[in-house]
Amino acid sequence: MTAGTARANHTIAVLPDMQLAPLFAAYRAAAAARRFRLLTGAVIAAAVLALSFVGAEVEPRTFWAKIGNAGDYFFRLAHLDTGAPVWTDPAEWFWGLKRWTRLLGETLLIAYVGTAVGVLGAFAACFVASERLVGNRWGRAAARRVLEVCRTVPDLVFALIFVVAFGLGPLPGVMALAIHTAGALGKLFAEIVDNIDMKPVEGVAAAGGSWFARVRFGVVPQVLASFASYSLLRFEINVRGASVLGFVGAGGIGEELIIAIRRFYYADVSAILLLIVFCVMLIDMGSAQLRHSLARLEGAR
């Protein structure tokens, strides 16, 4: 303890040791408690990880044996059947460009129509699920549960079931995306509606407006911009989702891709993947542009 020397050199007020001791003890206890909490957390995390290593059947030895395959696989993705690198013969590499572009267009349309139907569903559901507009507690709770199930069950599971009900093709894919979208957006929309300013709604009500007029002129103008930007974000997600719907027979480019992967048509796999990546990036950029101009419009008002 250097309390005495400190007092001798400077005029800084330092508490006497007797008063400092309990403070130091409290500090040490707090630090120890923090360390203990951190340690417990680390031990639990390590235990969970060890358990999942066993659960996922990871064996380090096979991993090292197989990791060489990965390099080999990606090397083959970049080479044609003739052994030449893919970029030396783009015409041969993208031999199915016309067909793939058509399927990619189909994928985009599935994503678009699915998103549109889902947005309409979410729009209808959010007014029921929001506590601001519907007084009926039971109806509200029921709507929330239904939305929760719709967004927790993955869209591919819906697609699997719908393929059995509706037959192969884009229809089950559109339905699956629509239901998942309605569940995910319905929740977000309801939260937005819960946070609106009630004064315009009261104004319309005071002027004798019906429930419909209150929603149309009091609520919709406040929420439309955020609804639109969330819908665009969801569309980006759904484009990615639609690219794999074909794996279960629900239309789009996925079917072509899974056949290429399963039959080891390496050059086709890389060509289709590149097309998908290019398309997704294009959509993301366009949608980001639209969202920014929406935000500007909103800011200008």
Binding site: T62, F247, I258, I261, V277
Partner: peptide
Amino acid sequence: SVDTLIWALIWINVVGLGPFAGA
């Protein structure tokens, strides 16, 4: 922009069927 499911198919080709490919 490549979906998890596409990665799964690729890793199955590399390390074989099973949960390891999934992880």
